[in-house]
Structure formats: structure tokens, C-alpha cells
């Protein structure tokens, strides 16, 4: 029979390897991944570089970089080792970046999924709340929250999460709006599957790819927000963080520029890493949007 359907072909390569092939195509994204690995390695080896306390006095104040091998990147005005600060700061920045992103994405998914799936007045209420958050500038809200909660590391993470959930909520809602009318959702309802299972097991896995791409952007923004807070002197002084280092370095910016510049470069490279990864993931997930 010449027009009988052909049998099923051989299994195509798994989704992960296809994604990696597409990701690899973007050289900038690979660079981002390399940068991230370096930052991760710094965070992991911070204990070897400075086992006691990165905030202790390690030598004379304001030693320029590459002059004393005990403190290769020099010291700040209190004699703290800048290299140790950079390594331990990587831990703080990654911690803040990852945890506050998890907080923001979780709130965003919950609000967006419920809003998009149920629609109607539930959607109206949740979206008005989201808009209320969006109308206040991020950083102003963050300052207010930190002022109220106090500036411990934990509170900062929560505050950053609270100011960044609105964009993922809108994104998830948009995905749910387009997916909830699909026939596979109707098929699941017709089998008697409950609402919670439809939201989390049927729709959410299909809505997740753009959210994961967006998460890398939120991570970059979270790190910047923490640095900005620390720069204004609102950071947690008990942790070595890049923002704290810049904040301290700005007092001696004219005489010892390296105190602020070195952590500044660290922030730029880390944020760049997350942005490039985000772009690479986006192309890996939506190959058609790529310009040829």
C-alpha cells in the first residue's frame, strides 16, 4: 500500500542534547557560561584564599595591586585584602542572585498561573495588585522595604524577591492564557483531572522555558540591586560583598581607584555572564526567533 503511513522513525536525539547544540552555536553565550563557571569556582575556593575572615586586617592600608604578594590585588583603606573580598563576595552575590530569584519566580509563577488559568475576577484582582507593585519604582520600593525590615542579608534577599516578582508573574500569566485554551488541557479536564494538577502538571511544564530564560535576567538584576543597596551603605556590613567594597572604596576613589574598580569589574562580568546565558538559553529554547 503506497500511501500507508510510514512507521515511526528512529528516536531523535534527546531534548537536552539538541538544546546544547543550539546553545553552543552562540559564542557569546558560551563565554557567559565560562564566566559563570569562573565565578562559581571563586565562590567554591573562597575558603582557601582566606580561611579566617575576609573582613580582617591583612596588611597596610591602601596597598596598590601587584605590589605585595601577600595581598595580590592590594588592600583597602582598612587594610582588608581585596582578593579575599572578591572571592568571598562571589559567594554573597551568587547567594543573593539565586535565592532572591527563586523567591521572585515562585511568587511570579503562583500569581501568574492562578491569574491566567482561572481568569475572571481572580485575574482582575491579582493583576491590579501586580500593577500596584509595578507602578512603584523597583529601587524605591526596595529602599523602603530594607528601611523597614532592616538590612540583614536575609531581609535583603526577601526584599529583592518581593520587588522582582511582577515581570515573571505577567510572563507566566501570558503563557497560561495561551496554553489554557489548547486542546490538551481540555483533554485533561475531560479525563477528570483536577485544577491543581492541570495547572502544575499539564500547563506549567509547557510554560516554563521562557520563565527559565527570564530567571537569568532576574539574577543579574538582583546582584545589581544588592550592590546598589550596599553602595548607599544599606548593605549587610557583616558579609563581604562586592557592593560593600565599592561603597567603602568610593571614599578613596581619587587616591586609590582600585578599591572600587576591582569589585566593580567583578560585578560587570558576573551580570554580563547571566545576561549572555539568558540570551543563549532563549535561542536554544526558541530557535525560530533567531535572526538568520
Amino acid at each position: 500500500m503506497s500511501v500507508l503511513e510510514s512507521e515511526i522513525g528512529t528516536a531523535p536525539p534527546s531534548g537536552w542534547s539538541v538544546m546544547w547544540t543550539r546553545y553552543k552555536r552562540n559564542r557569546a553565550a558560551v563565554l557567559g557560561l565560562v564566566l559563570l563557571v569562573i565565578v562559581l569556582a571563586m565562590a567554591a575556593t573562597a575558603g582557601f584564599v582566606e580561611p579566617v575572615d575576609p573582613l580582617r586586617r591583612a596588611g597596610d592600608p591602601l596597598v596598590p595591586p601587584f605590589t605585595d604578594w601577600a595581598t595580590p590585588l592590594g588592600t583597602d583603606q582598612l587594610g582588608r585584602d581585596i582578593l579575599a573580598g572578591i572571592f568571598h563576595g562571589a559567594r554573597t552575590s551568587l547567594l543573593i542572585g539565586i535565592v532572591s530569584t527563586v523567591v521572585a519566580i515562585s511568587i511570579g509563577i503562583l500569581v501568574g498561573a492562578i491569574s491566567g488559568y482561572f481568569g475572571g475576577w481572580i485575574d482582575d484582582v491579582l493583576m491590579r495588585v501586580t500593577e500596584a507593585f509595578q507602578t512603584i519604582p523597583n529601587f524605591v520600593l526596595l529602599l523602603a522595604l530594607v528601611a523597614i525590615l532592616g538590612s540583614s542579608l536575609q531581609n535583603m534577599i526577601i526584599a529583592i524577591g518581593i520587588v522582582s516578582w511582577t515581570a515573571p508573574a505577567r510572563l507566566v500569566r501570558a503563557e497560561f492564557l495561551s496554553l489554557r485554551g489548547r486542546e490538551f488541557v481540555e483533554a485533561a479536564r475531560n479525563l477528570g483531572v483536577g485544577d491543581a494538577a492541570i495547572i502544575f502538571r499539564e500547563i506549567l511544564p509547557n510554560a516554563l522555558p521562557p520563565v527559565i530564560v527570564f530567571a537569568s535576567v532576574i539574577m543579574a538584576i538582583s546582584i545589581l540591586l544588592e550592590s546598589a543597596l550596599a553602595f548607599l551603605g544599606l548593605g549587610d556590613p557583616n558579609f563581604a560583598s562586592w557592593g560593600n567594597m565599592i561603597g567603602a572604596g568610593k571614599a578613596v576613589l581619587r587616591s586609590a581607584w582600585y578599591c572600587a574598580a576591582i569589585p566593580g569589574i567583578a560585578i560587570v562580568l558576573t551580570v554580563l555572564a547571566f545576561s549572555l546565558i539568558g540570551e543563549g538559553l532563549n535561542e536554544a529554547v526558541n530557535p525560530r526567533q533567531k535572526k538568520s
Binding site: 489548547r182 486542546e183 490538551f184 481540555e186 483533554a187 485533561a188 475531560n190 479525563l191 477528570g192 499539564e202 511544564p205 509547557n206
Partner: peptide, 19 residues
């Protein structure tokens, strides 16, 4: 009762959860 009445949908691309 959904046991007793089942559906076959129009769009074979959209009616099966791709994941």
C-alpha cells in the same frame, strides 16, 4: 461520569501534551 463520555479532538498537534 466523565468515564462514560470521552472526546477525540481536532488538532492532533495541540491535543496531546508535548511533555
Amino acid at each position: 461520569r466523565r468515564r462514560d463520555i470521552q472526546m477525540v479532538f481536532q488538532d492532533p498537534m495541540a491535543s496531546l501534551n508535548p511533555r
